[in-house]
Amino acid sequence: MTDRQHNAAWQAAQQWRERARQSRPSQGAGGLKLLATWLVVGVMMIVGTLLGLFFLIVGWAMLPFLRHRMKKRAETFRAEHARPVGGSGAQDGTQTRDDAHSSHVLEGDYRVKSDD
Rank of each mutant, 00 (worst) to 15 (best):
M70L: 14
G48W: 03
L51I: 12
R67C: 02
A90M: 11
N7C: 09
N7P: 00
G59K: 06
D115W: 08
R78Q: 10
T96K: 04
T2P: 04
G30N: 02
P25K: 02
W10E: 12
G42R: 03
W10C: 08
S102E: 05
M45K: 03
T96R: 05
A13D: 08
R111Q: 14
L66Q: 14
E75P: 01
V85G: 01
K72M: 12
I46W: 02
Q15S: 09
D109M: 05
S114N: 07
G30T: 00
M70Y: 07
D92Y: 01
A20Y: 06
Q22T: 08
L35T: 11
D116W: 04
H101M: 11
D116M: 06
L32P: 00
A90P: 01
A8D: 13
A61P: 01
A12W: 01
G89D: 06
W60M: 14
M70N: 15
G30V: 00
A8M: 11
G86E: 14
S23M: 07
P25I: 03
W10N: 12
S103G: 04
R97P: 01
A90F: 01
G86V: 02
R83T: 15
L34E: 10
A61N: 13
H6G: 08
A100F: 13
A29W: 06
Q5T: 10
R67K: 11
R111H: 09
